[in-house]
Design a protein around this nucleic acid. Sequence first.
DNA 1: ATAGGGTTAG
Length: 758
Amino acid sequence: MSHLHTAALKATKLNHLKQLHAQLFQRSLCSDNYWVAQLIKLCTRLHAPPTYVNRVFDSVHQPNVFIFTNILKFYSQLGAHSDVLYLFDKMQKCNVAPDAFVYPILIKASGKWGVVFHAHCIKMGHDWDRFVRNAIMDMYGKFGPLEIARELFDEIPERAVADWNAMISGCWNWGNEVEARSLFDLMPEKNVVTWTAMVTGYSRRKDLENARKYFDQMPERSVVSWNAMLSGYAQNGCSEEVIRLFNEMMSCGVCPDETTWVTVISLCSSHGDASLAEGLVKMINDKGVRLNCFAKTALLDMYAKCGNLAMSRKIFDELGTYKNLVTWNAMISAYARVGDLASARGLFDTVPEKNVISWNSIIAGYAQNGQSKVAIDLFKDMIAKDVLPDEVTMVSVISACGHLGALEFGNWAVNFLEKHQIKLSISGDNALIFMYSKCGNMKDAEKVFQSMDTRDVISYNTLITGFAAYGNAIEAVELLWKMKKENIEPDRITYIGVLTACSHGGLLEEGRRIFDSIKDPDSDHYACMVDLLGRNGKLDEAKCLIGSMAMHPHAGVYGSLLHASRVHKRIDLGEFAASKLFEIEPENSGNYVLLSNIYASARRWEDVDRVRGLMTIGGVKKTTGWSWIEHKGEMHKFIVGDRSHERSADIHRVLSETEKKMRLAGYMADTSCVLKDVEEEEMEEMVGTHSEKLAVAFALLVTEPHSVIRVVKNLRICRDCHTAIKIISKMEGREIIVRDNNRFHSFSEGQCSCKDYW
DNA sequence: ATAGGGTTAG
């Protein structure tokens, strides 16, 4: 028998464990309580997979308290708290009375619900056990109320160092620096844990100076102390310090543990620094370090954030049954981040157990990749499955509503926030500002902005961009001054917004001044500036500006010039801009169409034909987009020639009735003169089923007569459609609000409020 | 100790 004990003591690898298991099997000791307990203890030490432990556990007929204690420890080490609680339940069902060894494990695993076991312990008389008492104190220190921890602490006749430590950490948890320090100074004997608690405490207060002071004064340091200091630096964004301290740690001969690796690896991920990551991986490989599931997950995330998705997937697959929910979620969001929604969705659908973060990852994935409707539908699924969304979910959903212009559903979401007491932080408020301004509700957008007690650059940018879309240039410019006064540094997006606002609002000089104040303007700023000059007829100046650029102008810059050339009928500049655009983005049909329109307005039909020819030769297809409309919180989409909508027949009936009414009312001349310049087949398309027209017809169909129709999202109104809406608004006597990308047009009584449009 | 959120245009 004794050689079995030696084997158990010597086991360092999973194989040793399996050999021992086999020997026990030969001697029919596999269901012997003593040996099963020993095996489980070894599993904990050697990080065996849970499936193996369960097999060992299942082979015993009547598990005793030792076996339960050991398996509880096993799952506790894994952080599998629900398994711990499940096993405790099983333990009670097996009529095995928990002893003083069980309760500390149990209390640690149950988080704030540990309170329940406090009463248990008193009833069973275990509350006088120093380990149990310490665990209870620790729990109150973490989850509160701290006063109870203090009472327990004061009642202890002979306080152990661990009791002091628990109390000090408790004070830090509740932000009581003074009390923590006075306890520290009062302590008769301190150990590494005490010192480390001080380092952790100061780190969490972002007081790195004091953290470092205690760290430097420590009589001895454990890995945990190093980790505390490292994560202090990491969480405060001091990446150079992390690297320096990590190297110092290595040269002091301290062996990094798994936490160290996790800290350093996740630092690399937040940096997205591939070369840093590479060095780290090399070090890990050279040392032959075996990483646990936490570190592997961090590594997976790091590769994903450094752009190496293949490695992420490799780690994911290699983890096999070891992976936990965090691993799954990391992989899902890795795919979502790069826009591989199919892979993300595939994983999401196969996650054994989803949590809010799984849902958030996939919803954010769709929301960030232009699939707002899918994001919202998934959110609806989530609610139907009774998963409670949190703030992060709502931020994605609200943003998605903004992108779609889905104000009705957006308002529903705001109600949901109130009903479920979900508090929004700065990102949430920013998302709200975004949603309201995208939906044309600047009043509420401003209201949210005013109500915030801290605003960041994104809050300003979002509101500025909202005003820009409306042409409220003065408000946008004022916001720029206001943010400077609040010491919030404008970034490139701020300037894009302000310049766009000046452009839409006709503030030429102001725009010029602002443009000149930008430290290093990029192509986007130049594009805005060209647009601003172009709208004001300063086309030659715009061309000079392009010539003065230090970098290669991107398509947007020439696009603005081409647009202005069309408005101001400048064939020379239009040809110049278009020729550049045909090089930069030969597949963009819009450029060909614009140039051909410029020629058409000058009645240069041969050139019109030539440009059309270019399109055919280049195989450029006119791209058509979907038009969206919201009705009762549901989004409906339409595209040319599509009859998949369930009310398609009605829609086409309304469309033809409206057109008939228009003709009867004598509006034909109006539209036909527009149509004269286009070819037969295109005319068919224009008078036929343009997506915008379908959307408007749907709106006419579903809304009450004389009510406001809100038509939103991607309604690029062609000239023909613009005329049609004007006429409808007059004939039906109702207001129609239309959003053409970012501009709002309000039609009523045959007038469109947006004057400079055509 | 590892996973999720907000702003860009014609």
